[in-house]
Amino acid sequence: MTEKTLNLEGMSCAHCKAAVEEELGKLPGVEYSNADPGAGTVEVRFDEGKVTDDDLKGAVEEAGYAVAA
């Protein structure tokens, strides 16, 4: 398993947290995600053989947020 912290733009509340975690959780291979609206980050644990960085970014965008560069 790989762990990664992504910086997100636009996340500000518990609803944001839930939306990001829900979309990441839909990806096969994501074992765990924990979004922190205050810090603007999400920690993700995933199987690199099943999930790519682009998959993670796509899930965050599907939730309505952007991964910061």
Rank of each mutant, 00 (worst) to 15 (best):
K17R: 15
D53F: 10
R45S: 13
A18P: 06
A19R: 15
A18W: 08
D47V: 02
G29A: 13
R45H: 11
L27Y: 04
G58K: 13
G29H: 11
G10L: 09
C16Q: 07
G49R: 04
V20D: 12
G38K: 13
T41F: 07
H15Y: 03
V44D: 06
F46H: 12
V44G: 03
G10S: 12
E31G: 02
E21M: 04
G29L: 10
V20F: 13
G25R: 04
A18L: 08
A39I: 00
G58M: 06
T52W: 03
K26N: 13
A14E: 14
K26C: 01
V30W: 05
E43I: 08
P37C: 01
S12P: 00
T52F: 09
A59W: 08
L27A: 07
C13N: 08
G10V: 04
N34Q: 14
E48K: 13
D55L: 09
L27K: 05
N34V: 00
G40R: 13
K26Q: 14
S33I: 08
V44H: 02
K17S: 02
A35N: 07
D55H: 08
R45Q: 14
V44R: 00
E31Y: 13
C16L: 12
E21A: 05
D55Q: 09
G38I: 02
L27T: 10
G49L: 01
V44N: 02
E43D: 14
A35M: 08
G40K: 11
K57N: 01
T41W: 07
K50Y: 04
A18I: 00
V51K: 07
D54Q: 15
V42F: 08
L56Q: 02
S12Y: 09
C13R: 05
T41A: 07
L24W: 09
V51N: 03
F46C: 07
D36Q: 14
D53R: 05
C16M: 08
T52G: 10
L24G: 04
A18E: 15
A39L: 15
L24P: 06
E31P: 01
G38D: 14
F46W: 03
E22H: 07
D55W: 09
E23M: 10
R45E: 13
